[in-house]
């Protein structure tokens, strides 16, 4: 049977939409890089830029979301195509949330004030969390594009590093002392650590979508309510 031209266009469009959707992860990685820099240097201007630039991530979300809905309405995708579209709709939401978490961090940076950080150890750990989360984001994207379930599953292991650092931040905050200003700073930093931890979790969620696209089965790699 001859290849049907209209169908070939659809296949190409779906491929392009996937590239474009996952390209959102590069935007998130850029935003996170700037966010970490803003934390490290208490750079309020840079933080403002991250907040403003989040519109790009949201815009991409809306645009690709609409295109995927159009494909669903006009092309009746099934099987792998259907699973890919369903997972992209999911992943788009993950990406949008990751961008929002960067914004959340950048909004609290001014609250940490111009004073030197109350606890260098905590900042060190938050920056380490951010660096590790960037690794997760890149790996989530690569595993999706390559449909590599093993690589996707490995995100859980990578995420453990982030979780452990987050826990250490919590204990450092507990030990920060009685001074009200120091306590306020520590609280702000805990929110920051928490936001980064959420970004990494979203990367793991994307990994779960990789497994769904490949196998057709959706399973959480690790269920927070039933730890492995």
């Amino acid at each position: 049977m001859p290849e049907v031209a209209a169908r070939a266009e659809y296949v190409e469009e779906l491929t392009n939409l996937e590239q474009s959707a996952l390209g959102g992860l590069d935007l998130v990685n850029d935003a996170l890089t700037r966010t970490l820099e803003a934390i490290e240097h208490q750079d309020i201007e840079l933080a403002q830029l991250v907040v403003a630039d989040d519109d790009r991530i949201d815009g991409r979300y809306l645009e690709i979301h609409q295109s995927l809905i159009t494909l669903l309405a006009t092309q009746s995708p099934v099987a792998t195509d259907l699973r890919l579209i369903a997972s992209l709709l999911h992943v788009l939401k993950n990406i949008e949330r990751m961008g929002d978490q960067c914004v959340n961090i950048c909004k609290v940076i001014p609250l940490s004030g111009n004073e030197p950080p109350a606890d260098e150890e905590m900042v060190k750990r938050i920056l380490a969390m951010g660096k590790q989360t960037r690794v997760l984001i890149a790996q989530a994207k690569r595993s999706f594009l390559e449909r590599d379930v093993d690589q996707a599953r490995d995100l859980v292991r990578q995420d453990d590093v982030v979780d452990n650092l987050n826990r250490e931040c919590f204990y450092l905050a507990l030990a920060i002392g009685d001074d009200a200003d120091r306590r306020e700073w520590a609280m702000t930093m805990l929110l920051t650590a928490r936001a980064i931890e959420r970004i990494a979790d979203n990367a793991v969620d994307i990994g779960e979508q990789v497994a769904f696209v490949v196998t057709g089965l959706f399973r959480e790699f690790e269920d927070a309510s039933h730890p492995a």
Binding site: M1, P2, V4, R7, Q75, A79, T215, G216
Partner: peptide
């Protein structure tokens, strides 16, 4: 068959990838 067929030929047919 329409979400996760086993055979590639089935997948190609239901997805409209003829040829």
């Amino acid at each position: 068959i329409f979400t996760n067929p086993t055979e590639k030929a089935t997948e190609d047919y239901v997805s409209g990838r003829f040829g």
